[in-house]
Design a protein around this nucleic acid. Structure first.
Lengths: 163, 163
DNA sequence: GCAGACGCGAAATATTATTGCGCATGCGGC
DNA sequence: GCCGCATGCGCAATAATATTTCGCGTCTGC
């Protein structure tokens, strides 16, 4: 199982940096209970091992004029690897598509999209998404409000599992 | 419109910090073409104005043993504000639920969940989600693979709109 | 019991953040 | 058209932080 090589301090480091990615190393060190140099070494190790994929500012889409968020459930006309890959490539190229996940079941893909307003999204929907190769059906749902938005990996669960 | 008060340098700052949240201020300053002190002042202003909501390490769920991700489409037995709020509160309390969005249309909520394995998720589904108050129907779809995962606010679109 | 590896902490150095100040630019009042 | 005033920049100095180097203790496996 991945994660087995992490001790409690490593997990604390991950949890702290997940909560505040710009925390200084000295602050981090004092929070996890070791001194700064070994703390920094651990952080570097975690980064290189892929536990930490990067650091990002959380920029508010709304403040920048992206008023609407939409989930789009997409079905393709066939599920060949070529069609699936082609569609994924298209999604990566569309800026309004923020996430693209391939699913099992009736729906082939779920997309999370943002747009400045409804009409922008509808333009995107009719002129881009619905016209894309292999797209057979699209059902969209507007996000009315967001109760929880990706608070990160739930370390409570990790602790529970590892004891 | 929000965002109108930002000049090109501010937008560059947001884009750079979104791409790398631990960039040093001197590096950031040189990238956006001003000196360090005014750059730091702008960053502080952006933080206080709510354009930057925070900074977070991007921790890999997979490395920590979360092998599966699932989307759950949830319908409630009534759409009263009390029922909606109560369900949202439940979602915020469940660690395995990483996102909870209220939607229009047939589905009331869409949840993005993670779990260490399928059986953990099924326990959560049957013992928690399906038994929660007001939950009438749940359809789940496993994520087979992820083609794109929240690359942040698409600044290309912002630039396009503001010129 | 002993050699090696590992991880810690303290001190020294380099890098960075942060503050205070003077200067240029652009705008409104007279 | 000229003069204050506000805004925002850059420079220089100081404080804080990151990062490297080194020596020490501990734990493991022989």
């Amino acid at each position: 199982m991945p994660g087995a090589k992490l001790d409690e301090i490593d997990r604390k480091i991950l949890a702290e940096l997940q909560a505040d990615g710009r925390m200084t190393n000295v602050e981090l060190a004092s929070r996890v209970g070791i001194s700064a140099p070994p703390c920094l070494r651990r952080v570097r190790t975690l980064e290189e091992a892929g536990y930490i994929r990067g650091y990002h500012a959380d920029v508010s889409p709304r403040e920048l004029g992206f008023e609407v968020a939409v989930f789009a459930m997409v079905g393709l006309d066939n599920q060949s690897e070529a069609a699936l890959s082609a569609f994924e490539a298209r999604c990566r190229a569309w800026p309004l598509v923020r996430e693209c996940h391939m699913l099992n079941g009736e729906i082939d893909f779920i997309l999370k999209c943002v747009a400045p307003d409804l009409s922008s999204f509808q333009s995107f929907l009719t002129e881009e998404l619905l016209r894309a190769d292999h797209v057979a059906s699209v059902k969209t749902s507007l996000v009315i409000r967001c109760a929880k938005d990706d608070p990160g990996v739930p370390f409570e669960v990790v602790e529970e599992r590892l004891g």
